[in-house]
């Protein structure tokens, strides 16, 4: 199609009437996302912005950004936010929540941030039952530093620091964070979701909604792992990453709720 035809097609004439079916979520800024094409982070950001809007809690919400690809999350979310040191988001969120107990506090962390350098802060925050929501983006790789092995890198998976594939005899098995923290009494709601298909996006949205809603109950930590993709560092096209998630990631990291509140737990 030549440029002229393309322009004609994209030009909206005044006579035409359109029904608005989708627009930028109110709590996303106009800033252009820096994420690579096809990356799941943008979808996860959008879901947070939508849910905060749906619940009408922006005046009471404080987010904590990690070090990793989402280090600039506060550029995109039009929400009061703090940028934590690498791995310390759960400690920072603890500090915020303890002095502002009536506010909604969430962290947004990658696998290196949460499951490697920050695993102590994560486990202890959950063990104390901090009334925060932890959103954990698991794409099995260090994205920001361009493709090193993460604690969640799959067995045999090639990265720049496991160039011959992750050898689990010397590098250990990938950590399943949901299963690790779910037995802790402080964990109130633990679920693993994904954002690589429309159905999964809807489910992930519902999980984030619950995760924030449950915070008012004051009954413990909500932990939502989101299986995401990294086309650039997986060296795949975005479409190929969807296949990889289905065939390789999900068999190791099964989707679904790992711990759900009982009906009586949902009473104030």
């Amino acid at each position: 199609m030549n440029e002229e035809k393309l322009e004609q097609q994209n030009t909206v004439t005044e006579e035409e009437e359109f029904e608005l079916i989708y627009e930028r979520p109110v709590h996303l800024t106009e800033t252009r996302l820096h994420y690579c094409p096809g990356c799941g982070h943008s979808t996860a950001h959008k879901l947070i912005a939508e849910v905060v809007h749906e619940l009408g809690i922006v005046t009471k919400t404080i987010g904590v950004a990690p070090v990793g690809c989402a280090v600039f999350a506060y550029d995109y979310l039009n929400i009061d936010m703090q940028e934590a040191a690498h791995g310390r988001a759960c400690a920072v969120a603890t500090g915020i929540k303890r002095v502002l107990p009536d506010k909604y506090v969430f962290t947004y962390q990658g696998d290196g941030d949460l499951a490697a350098i920050g695993i102590a802060e994560t486990i202890h925050a959950v063990n104390r039952g901090e009334n925060i929501l932890i959103i954990f983006i698991n794409n099995a790789i260090y994205g920001m530093t361009s493709g090193q092995m993460a604690p969640t890198t799959l067995p045999g998976m090639k990265t720049t620091t496991s160039p011959y594939g992750r050898d689990t005899s010397s590098m250990g098995m990938p950590l399943k964070m949901c299963e690790l923290i779910a037995p802790l009494k402080g964990a109130f709601y633990v679920t693993r979701q994904a954002v690589h298909t429309a159905t999964n996006v809807r489910k992930a949205r519902k999980a984030i909604l619950n995760g924030l809603k449950y915070q008012t109950l004051g009954k413990g930590t909500c932990f939502i792992e989101i299986i995401s993709n990294c086309p650039s560092n997986w060296k795949m096209t975005p479409v190929q990453t969807i296949d990889f998630i289905e065939k390789d990631m999900i068999p190791y990291y099964p989707l679904g709720d790992v711990k759900v509140p009982k009906p009586e737990d949902l009473k104030q």
Binding site: A84, A85, A93, T94, G95, I96
Partner: peptide, 26 residues
């Protein structure tokens, strides 16, 4: 007032960061 025994000094200083950033005297 809030008193919390952290899991490490690394955690306590970052709790200070969060709480101070939220406007508290810490």
């Amino acid at each position: 007032g809030v008193v919390l025994q952290a899991e490490s000094e690394v955690a306590s200083i970052n709790m200070i960061y969060g709480a101070a950033g939220a406007g508290a005297r810490v």
